[in-house]
Simulated scan of single mutants.
Amino acid sequence: MAVQWFPGHMTKAKKDFEKNLKYNDLVIEVVDARLPRSSENPMLNQIIKNRAKPHLKLLNKSDIADEKVTQQWINFFQKETTISALAVSAKNKKNKVDIKKACMKLVPHRGTSIKPVRAIIIGIPNVGKSSLINLLTQKKIAKTGDVPAVTQMQQRIIVDNDFVLTDTPGLMWHKIESEVQGNYLAASNIIGINAYDETEAALYLLDCLKENYSQSLMDRYELDATIINQPSEDIIEAIAIKKHMLLKGNNPDLRKSAVIILQDYRSQKIGRISLEFPEK
């Protein structure tokens, strides 16, 4: 399954990003801490690399990701790349200071009222970029929502007298070739509902949970180890039966079971989960 989800306004947004990049000192990229690789935009990263701009990657939603794995990602970016990385949560007001300090460190020649830091902030839809902007400004400047593609226009935002942001729409690339990547994005509610199959996304999610969070999976759905060791299709069926999600003829409702699994992951009812690991 190659996921294709590229709303028309994103073509214009990509061109606007390229145009405005030269007027900014650095790039702040927001990714989902649960899947830092799958939630970054390779199309934009290549543009940033070509322009040789300082690059700060914010691993947002770190409060719902596996804390140990998030720290592994921070170490990875700092040791293996030229990208600075910081774990943040839009719910943590203290992170405003952390983000500003990280930016000032990257552009030490800026950061006064005369020469404020000028940062352009990017991220694919629904990684929490708008919520972070509201955190930085301490106001509800940017629209937020739990569906992708809320922001559709670039806007200049004065955070403080020494810090200015250029906001951009959530930008996807044209085609997600990897099945794993596409389904991780789907499971994490980052791409639109019409672009994926819920049962397929739940199967990929279960594959990860079985391998890395088997005890959390067993605890949430009262499953035993013999079921956990079965194919993910059997686990979806077992959960449907356990939760009495049945169709006519007492057949398990596999789609409803899949939707419940996705919802439980998104609402942290299974626990703090990371889907991607640096060593893999």
Rank of each mutant, 00 (worst) to 15 (best):
N251I: 15
Q152G: 04
G8M: 10
K100L: 13
T226V: 11
S188R: 04
N250M: 15
I235F: 00
I158R: 14
I191F: 00
S188N: 02
D63A: 11
S232P: 00
I190L: 12
A225L: 11
N250G: 14
I141P: 03
S39D: 11
E67A: 14
S178K: 10
K280T: 11
A201I: 00
T199W: 03
M10K: 08
S214M: 12
E237N: 00
V147L: 07
D253G: 00
L59M: 12
V30K: 02
V97P: 00
D146T: 06
K12D: 07
S274L: 12
I83E: 04
G128D: 02
D234G: 02
P252N: 03
D63M: 10
D219G: 07
A202D: 03
P7V: 14
Q181R: 13
K105L: 06
N126W: 07
R34H: 01
V31L: 01
A195L: 05
L203V: 14
T166N: 12
G170L: 06
E29K: 01
A225N: 12
E179I: 06
S38Q: 10
M172W: 05
I114L: 14
I158F: 08
D160C: 10
N24Q: 07
P108F: 09
I124T: 02
N229H: 14
Y196R: 04
N161H: 12
R51A: 15
D219F: 09
C208W: 00
E29L: 01
E276G: 09
F17N: 01
V3A: 02
G111A: 05
L135M: 15
A85S: 15
D197Q: 13
V180W: 05
Q71A: 02
V3S: 01
V69T: 13
Y213H: 03
K22N: 11
M218I: 07
S214F: 13
G271Y: 08
Q46L: 13
Q215A: 14
V259W: 04
S257C: 09
K91E: 13
E18L: 11
A102N: 09
I83H: 03
M172T: 07
V107G: 02
K105C: 00
I176F: 03
L185V: 04
N41P: 02
D66N: 15
K15L: 11
S214Q: 14
D32Y: 06
L262V: 06
V97M: 05
Q138H: 12
D167G: 09
N45C: 15
N126K: 09
I122Y: 00
C208P: 05
L171K: 04
T144V: 11
N92A: 10
T144R: 00
N20G: 05
